[in-house]
């Protein structure tokens, strides 16, 4: 598997570390009434789809950036690679 890094170009899988579903970017609001349930869900339950999956990869043996990779879990085909920073900003996570 080759991940086409938005800044560095195509890099081999062995340079990366996998974290999991990109839903991990969306940490729940700790002040919400149902914060406990939301955090249990955030920490443990996953869609785990067979098909397109948005997921977090860390370029540990490279520039140490976090990436959001959209990959098909049935074919391993990668259709988009974004800097996690940009994704989070676009979702208003960092002000």
């Amino acid at each position: 598997m080759i991940i086409n890094h938005p800044l560095l170009g195509p890099r081999d899988l062995s340079e990366f570390v996998y974290l999991g579903d990109a839903c991990l970017l969306n940490r729940p609001d700790w002040q919400a009434d149902d914060a406990l349930d939301q955090f249990i869900d955030y920490g443990h339950t996953r869609d785990n789809p067979a098909g397109l999956h948005r997921e977090l990869w860390y370029h540990e043996q490279g520039d140490r950036s976090w990436l959001v990779v959209t990959r098909n879990t049935v074919t391993h085909e990668i259709t988009s690679v974004e800097l996690a920073r940009n994704v989070a900003r676009a979702e208003g996570r960092s002000k």
Binding site: G20, D21, T45, R46, N48, A50
Partner: peptide, 18 residues
């Protein structure tokens, strides 16, 4: 390995990754 797929038919999300 198909647990999440099959249980999704019952509307369930599982603490599992394949």
């Amino acid at each position: 390995g198909s647990s999440s797929k099959v249980m999704a038919y019952a509307g369930m999300r599982l603490p599992i990754e394949s």
